[in-house]
Design a protein around this nucleic acid. Sequence first.
DNA 1: AACTTGCGTAAGCAAATACTTACACATATA
DNA 2: TATATGTGTAAGTATTTGCTTACGCAAGTT
Lengths: 102, 102
Amino acid sequence: MRRDVFQAIADPTRREIINLIAFQSLNLNAIADHFDMSRPAISQHIKILNECGLLNIRQDGRERFCEMRFEKLQEVANWIARYQTFWNNKLDDLERHLNQKP
Amino acid sequence: MRRDVFQAIADPTRREIINLIAFQSLNLNAIADHFDMSRPAISQHIKILNECGLLNIRQDGRERFCEMRFEKLQEVANWIARYQTFWNNKLDDLERHLNQKP
DNA sequence: AACTTGCGTAAGCAAATACTTACACATATA
DNA sequence: TATATGTGTAAGTATTTGCTTACGCAAGTT
């Protein structure tokens, strides 16, 4: 059972959940209300997001509030950024080449 | 059968392939040599990467060279950037708060 | 104390995934 | 022409995934 960020954000439902809690923390039922899916299904998705560090769960009485953790998403951004730099330079070179006076 | 970038980069082997061709285009066998896996397996991974637009295939005689296409990876970066902005502001606010003179 | 609410988890299941081997086929080389 | 090389694809398979329903349990409410 792989459990990394790339795997976690591969699922559209989980990306939706991230989108929901990114700007406000919500409890599990509030999240589940947004989906045409059983509550346990959402519970399992949240478990996965939690296990790979994309969210924190704050217990408040019988409710559990999901709070986004951005650092892990940043890891993905960093992975992409490696190529981004190289690619931007390549595009710059191309542009310079095209702008060369004949 | 879903076929989007998030799904494509979820697999570690495919991320490795991206890493290999990001800086130099390689033919299929050259890519397959890097893995403890059958050539057809790699062929299938490349098919997926191709179908979701992460690479181009340039035919040269009997060889097929895989060339990275960065734009699709950029889509993932953009998705993350939405939260990045929000999150950075939050961190800035926190920092300002901590730096406040008492 | 009984009931409601919010949730986790187990069991079951269909579909997807990531491989394998076997084969086909075009392109180069002898 | 015969052979080697580079590759795609089909079929088979074990494992993983994403759901479901059923149940249990602790925290609040009556």
